[in-house]
Computed example of a mutant assay.
Amino acid sequence: MIVEPVVGNMGCVPPRDGYLQHLRDITTRHGALLIFDEVMTGFRLARGGAQELYNVTPDLTTLGKIIGGGLPVAAFGGRADLMRQLDPESERPMPHGGTYNGHALGMAAGLAAMRELSPEAFEQLERRGEWVRNQLAELFADHRVPGQATGLGSLFNVHFTDAELVDHRSVRRSQPARLAHRFVLGMLNHGVLMASRGLGAVCTPMTDADLRAFTAAADQVLAEQFAHGRLQDDRT
């Protein structure tokens, strides 16, 4: 079973309480592997990723993005008995070739990034991510726009709905995609680049001034696109 512990591509929706542990229990009971895709959450929500945050240990973990310090690097790891099958000195090793496996530049960049990600850095990212999510919630309320910012740690995602979001179906049902798209384009016009689905992330080089500039841009975009809680016509 392969899952994102915090699903990024559907809008940074955290799992319900006990959900990940339930997956761990049923895969263990049936002798199946539990694989966490932590490409987005690994070394971002915590040094140990979402599995540290939720105290659920998968059999295998995939990682990427942040571990390369900006360079294209990916990795996976897991239980010793599973990883031992890739050991070239084992009795019947499983080949695992790749053009950029162990690339020196990527490894050096990743090592430097890991050294910078101290416990204090994660605490700061958590505080700033929570501040951004709270500020967005206040802006939605101020402009009387149904909306929320989901996410954890440094990640946040804008949704134009006040319905509870718990899974893919609830996200798809609850909001017109065009609203998030319009918001992202509006932010771009104010010098802020976000993912097209309304995803954003706080990073360590950002300052408090950067975050205030982001929320000021969001305030302006909501004012431009909505009046008294109603979407302005594209022709106006």
Rank of each mutant, 00 (worst) to 15 (best):
residue 71 L to Q: 10
residue 106 G to P: 14
residue 120 E to S: 12
residue 110 G to P: 11
residue 150 T to A: 03
residue 146 P to G: 07
residue 133 R to D: 06
residue 225 Q to S: 00
residue 213 A to N: 08
residue 71 L to D: 00
residue 163 A to P: 08
residue 27 T to K: 04
residue 232 Q to K: 14
residue 151 G to L: 04
residue 137 A to G: 12
residue 22 H to Q: 10
residue 88 P to Q: 05
residue 94 M to Y: 13
residue 119 P to Y: 11
residue 48 G to N: 03
residue 147 G to F: 01
residue 63 L to Q: 05
residue 229 G to R: 06
residue 192 V to E: 05
residue 193 L to Q: 12
residue 20 L to N: 01
residue 12 C to D: 12
residue 116 E to N: 14
residue 152 L to S: 06
residue 202 V to I: 15
residue 189 N to K: 10
residue 185 L to H: 08
residue 4 E to Q: 11
residue 84 R to I: 01
residue 42 G to D: 01
residue 103 H to E: 13
residue 226 F to L: 02
residue 114 M to N: 09
residue 221 V to L: 05
residue 77 G to H: 06
residue 134 N to F: 10
residue 24 R to T: 00
residue 57 T to P: 00
residue 225 Q to M: 03
residue 89 E to R: 15
residue 186 G to F: 10
residue 215 T to Q: 04
residue 235 R to W: 07
residue 173 R to A: 13
residue 206 M to F: 10
residue 116 E to S: 14
residue 216 A to D: 05
residue 107 M to E: 14
residue 173 R to E: 14
residue 16 R to I: 03
residue 107 M to V: 15
residue 38 E to L: 04
residue 11 G to K: 05
residue 117 L to Y: 13
residue 233 D to Y: 01
residue 83 M to D: 02
residue 211 L to K: 09
residue 144 R to N: 12
residue 4 E to K: 03
residue 135 Q to K: 13
residue 207 T to L: 09
residue 195 A to M: 13
residue 144 R to T: 12
residue 13 V to C: 04
residue 223 A to P: 01
residue 96 H to I: 05
residue 121 A to P: 00
residue 227 A to K: 12
residue 152 L to M: 12
residue 64 G to M: 11
residue 84 R to Q: 14
residue 147 G to W: 00
residue 188 L to N: 11
residue 29 R to H: 14
residue 99 T to E: 11
residue 196 S to D: 13
residue 112 A to M: 10
residue 131 W to V: 05
residue 110 G to W: 14
residue 223 A to C: 07
residue 161 T to M: 07
residue 45 L to S: 02
residue 111 L to F: 07
residue 99 T to S: 12
residue 208 D to R: 15
residue 82 L to P: 03
residue 107 M to I: 15
residue 128 R to K: 13
residue 84 R to V: 01
residue 149 A to H: 09
residue 178 R to P: 00
residue 67 I to E: 03
residue 13 V to R: 02
residue 177 A to L: 11
residue 200 G to K: 09
residue 7 V to P: 00
residue 18 G to F: 03
residue 112 A to F: 05
residue 39 V to L: 10
residue 3 V to Y: 00
residue 212 R to I: 07
residue 136 L to N: 02
residue 61 T to D: 00
residue 77 G to I: 06
residue 158 V to K: 06
residue 176 P to R: 15
residue 59 D to S: 05
residue 181 H to F: 08
residue 195 A to F: 08
residue 88 P to G: 05
residue 137 A to R: 15
residue 11 G to V: 04
residue 127 R to E: 09
residue 53 L to A: 06
residue 116 E to W: 03
residue 216 A to Y: 01
residue 193 L to M: 15
residue 162 D to K: 15
residue 177 A to G: 10
residue 24 R to E: 01
residue 175 Q to Y: 09
residue 223 A to W: 01
